[in-house]
Design a protein around this nucleic acid. Structure first.
Length: 882
RNA sequence: GGGCGAUUAACUCAAUGGUAGAGUGUCAUCUUGACGUGGUGAAAGUUACAGGUUCGAGUCCUGUAUCGCCCACCA
């Protein structure tokens, strides 16, 4: 056993091996099992051709912690993995690839392109999974799904048809966001607004048949090519006379009416606004109200089309430049002002999006949003932290119809067919033989595909077999918790909720755990363009997955961003090393032939009872914290226990017994060391699965692997207040002695006598009991206990405790002035405490209103501090007088 | 224009209304038979500011300041 454990922790030696062991033995698998309660998490599917980044690492670590914990608690724990086809992003990558080969989408044709895309997917699709495995994720790989799988595609089709039949999907001409670079429509959620310093151009439009003119202001002068009106506010005195007249569109020489509409803000610009119904959502509405019609002036690639007259064929920005120039030349440009406004960009490629009228497919959101809002209000859906619930509701309350058609090829093609002859629209599972209206056989399928999020919205149930009525669906759905970043609440969380409610009649998950962003050490977002991204795999390679995992879940709170510091990873690697070596110590001191049966209670020493009582408490604390999703707190508790209590105190205390002659005491210590270690490994396993499993496999009498061992339970019988009290006295005595000695620069090698002065019998017992601790941990060579200190001279260090004073005679070393200084410091500290406690206790309100135990505690403290203060003062007095 | 978050030790962050903690860094010290990826000890805080509620506030309320994020069709 021991011989296999190297002197230092070296995660590379075992992480891959352990993972393979778990996987090959099927410990990640979840099956429908009516004897057990299910616990389900759906992994947010990463992009199929993506790479693992810190966000994934954080996210999946949290999920893995929860799933491992629940698995150990005895749940049938399903963690459903899979990948997303990420239409727009993957398609862009494939386009780029074939472009390098000198080919274009059009040249390849739809089929040829899809072939390329599938090849690409097969080539890079496995990467992210392998990377996740490095992290230690314990998801059920046998159930892996891909959004373009046959089953999931069927679910997508089914939902589309159902929504269509219900009238919740419609096709229409609407202003959508058009990305001229991706050459597709995108949804509102895919547009990022950014405040940009632009200009406001003031342009003069002449009035037909008059000498007058009207000045408008615009931020996008090129859109004037498509102007169909000028609008003013009906209340605006300045323009009252213009309403109903006709203006001449400069450069185009087109006649456009001047209309009145409430929408126009009188205070902004000149109070008159040009109306371009085809290229602005507001103008579109105005156009609808006034029956202005449409005039599209732009092509899909962002160039001006034939409606743009002489500007035909120019890129939109070149057209803008030329138009401004021409306006100026022809005397129409009144002035140009700097103007900050927000400009929409494509979330994927950052190109400025163009609002554009286009025939697209939409999901009618209002009827779907309502139930999604209701479940939140009814408490059936919970956010952790709950403030994100507000973001969720705010979005749903202001939701607009969802544009779901994309002019892309990589994705789920719309199950929509058109009759070439009569234009009839048919939504069907299979291509209709002939037109349902005119019986023509001239039928073609809509070339568009669906927004990727349309399929991810179904993830919680499509992965379980829906629309088939599978046993998995019945058992594992609804899921328990969704773990995801706040950046995709709108894209994904919201859409999963309303989709589930609509199709399943239930929420897809009860809790939504929201994570923050992992930033670099300067607080910047990690990004490719900045080149400041830290690759999780590099960290795993250097420090191990356990250290990375621990770093990601400690020291931050749900929903808050965190900074990634290498020093913290290192510290956590050191923690793993600490545990590794503690284990080596335990195994090194474990007699081969020791019978590891039950521990004989009567043989337990105080420190045994203390550590047993403490681990028991930690079991409760860690379990409770996990139950509240306080993962960082849970991790911190177990960390502190291992390092401070188990390693620094218990192991040190137990050493004399291990090296001693008393066989029974020795064996008891060995057993306790081992049993506590076992519990430690269990509690730590969800956080650091590799090292704990590796160590576990080296412990004696292993039957089950740790990953499927039972989660420890709090046991009231193990609580021992008395032992905790005694050990706490002993520990504070040791700390006091160490402190005093070090302050006086007494070398640890210099052993000294300790003279304990106390009249209290119980304290005397504890001291007597603690003899060996003082000798080993407080550099003592002899210990005396006496009732009074009269016989002692002044050349002592004195350590003041509650109801006890310790004297350390060090004749040659004591510098009286320094000792006085040290005690003065002690006095100051006590004064502070006394002031606080006295203040509280003399406060009538506190004594009468605070809970009894709080008051009692304060009273005890008062007594203790007064007692200590008296001794410090006496000591100071006698030193000063000597 | 709305909404949200943050402000705590030198740095990065924790902290169920009840004595403000950790990691890193700093200083001192220890080559003790698990670990120097370690041990021991120390220094370091008016919890951004101003009010309020409460017996008691880092924590709850109101306001201010600074920073950050999200949402929003003002051309």
């Amino acid at each position: 056993m021991l011989e296999n454990l190297s002197k230092t922790y070296n995660p590379k030696d075992f992480e891959d091996r352990i993972y393979k062991y778990w996987k090959d033995n099927g410990y990640f698998k979840a099956e429908v099992n009516e004897e057990k309660k299910p616990y389900t998490i759906m992994m947010p599917p990463p992009n199929v051709t993506g790479n693992l980044h810190m966000g994934h690492a954080l996210n999946n670590t949290i999920q893995d912690i929860l799933i491992r914990w629940k698995r150990m608690e005895g749940y049938e724990a399903l963690w459903q993995p899979g990948t997303d086809h990420a239409s727009i992003s993957t398609e862009a990558k494939v386009v780029e690839k074939i472009k390098k080969e000198g080919k274009s989408k059009e040249q390849l044709g739809r089929e040829g392109f899809l072939k390329e895309a599938w090849e690409w997917t097969r080539k890079y699709g496995g990467n992210i999974n392998n990377q996740l495995m490095k992290l230690g994720v314990s998801c059920d790989w046998d159930r892996e799904r891909f959004t373009l799988d046959e089953g999931l595609s069927k679910a997508v089709e089914e939902v589309f048809i159902r929504l269509y039949e219900k009238g919740l999907i419609y096709r229409g001409d609407r202003i959508i966001n058009w990305c001229p670079s991706c050459r597709t429509a995108i949804s509102d959620a895919e547009v990022e607004h950014e405040d940009t310093e632009g200009h406001l151009w003031y342009i003069r439009y002449p009035i037909k048949g008059e000498s007058g003119h009207i000045v408008i202001a615009t931020t996008r002068p090129e859109t004037m090519l498509g102007d169909l009106a000028i609008a003013v506010n009906p209340e605006d005195e300045r323009y009252r006379g213009f309403i109903g007249k006709t203006a001449i569109l400069p450069l185009m020489n087109r006649e456009i009416p001047i209309i009145a509409d409430e929408y126009v803000e009188m205070e902004f610009g000149t109070g008159a606004v040009k109306i371009t119904p085809s290229h602005d959502p507001n103008d579109f509405e105005v156009g609808e109200r006034h029956g202005l019609g449409q005039c599209v002036i732009m092509n899909g690639d962002g160039t001006i089309n034939e409606n743009g007259g002489i500007y035909n064929g120019l890129d939109r920005y070149e057209a803008r430049r030329r138009i401004v120039e021409d306006l100026k030349e022809q005397g129409y440009l009144v002035e140009v002002k700097k103007h900050n406004h927000s400009v929409g960009h494509c979330e994927r490629c950052k190109t400025t999006v163009e609002p554009l009228i286009s025939k697209q497919w939409f999901v009618k959101m209002e009827p779907l949003a309502k139930p999604a809002l209701d479940v939140y209000k009814e408490g059936k859906l919970r956010f952790i932290p709950d403030r994100f619930g507000k973001i969720y509701t705010h979005w749903l309350e202001n939701i607009k119809d969802w544009c779901i058609s994309r002019q892309l090829w990589w994705g789920h093609r719309l199950p929509v067919y058109y009759c070439e002859d009569c234009g009839e629209v048919m939504v069907a599972r299979k291509k209709p033989e002939k037109c349902t209206k005119c019986s023509s056989t001239n039928i073609y399928q809509d070339p568009d595909t669906l927004d990727t999020w349309f399929s991810s919205a179904l993830w919680p149930f499509s992965t379980l077999g829906w629309p088939e009525d599978t046993k998995e669906l019945k058992y594992f759905f609804p899921t328990d918790v969704l773990v995801t970043g706040y950046d995709i609440i709108f894209f994904w969380v919201v859409r999963m909720v309303f989709s589930s409610l609509e199709q399943m009649g239930e929420v897809p998950f009860k809790d939504v755990f929201i994570t923050g962003l992992v930033r670099d050490s300067l607080g910047r977002k990690m990004s490719k363009s900045l080149g400041n991204g830290i690759d999780p795999l590099d960290i795993i390679d250097e420090y191990g997955a356990d250290a990375l995992r621990f770093t990601l879940v400690t020291g931050n709170t749900p929903g808050n961003d965190m900074r990634f510091y290498m020093e913290r990873v290192e510290a956590n690697r050191n923690f793993a090393n600490k545990l590794w070596n503690a284990t080596r110590f335990v195994l090194m001191n474990l007699d081969e032939k020791i019978a590891l049966d039950k521990i004989e209670k009567s043989m337990l020493e105080e420190e045994d009872k203390w550590i047993i009582s403490r681990i028991n408490t930690v079991i409760r604390e860690v379990t409770n914290a996990l139950g509240r999703y306080e993962i960082g707190i849970a991790a911190q508790k177990i960390y502190d226990f291992i390092w401070d209590e188990y390693c620094d105190w218990y192991i040190e205390m137990v050493k004399p017994r291990l090296y001693g002659e008393n066989r029974e005491s020795k064996e008891t210590a060995q057993k306790v060391l081992l049993r506590v270690l076992e519990n430690i490994l269990k509690l730590l396993h969800p956080f650091m699965p590799f090292i704990t499993e590796e160590i576990w496999q080296h412990l004696p009498e292993r039957k089950k692997p740790l990953i499927v061992s039972d989660w420890p339970k709090f046991n009231e019988e193990n609580e021992d207040q008395d032992a905790e009290k005694k050990m706490s006295f002993i520990m504070s005595a040791i700390k006091g002695i160490r402190n005093a000695r070090q302050e006086m620069n007494v070398a640890p090698s210099r052993k000294a006598n300790l003279i304990f002065v106390t009249r209290e019998e119980d304290i005397k017992d504890i001291i007597e009991y603690g003899r060996r601790y003082f000798i080993n941990l407080a550099s003592a060579d002899n210990i005396t206990i006496q009732d009074n200190k009269e016989s002692l001279g002044e050349n002592n260090l004195s350590v003041v405790l509650d109801r006890c004073e310790i004297f350390i005679p060090l004749k040659d070393i004591i510098d009286i002035d320094k000792e006085i200084e040290r005690l003065e410091k002690e006095k100051e500290k006590l004064e502070g405490e006394l002031k606080r406690v006295k203040g509280k206790l003399s406060n009538e309100g506190f004594v009468s209103k605070a809970p009894r135990e709080v008051v009692e505690k304060e009273k005890e403290k008062l007594e203790k501090y007064e007692n200590m203060m008296e001794k410090v003062l006496q000591r100071l007095n006698s030193l000063k007088n000597s």
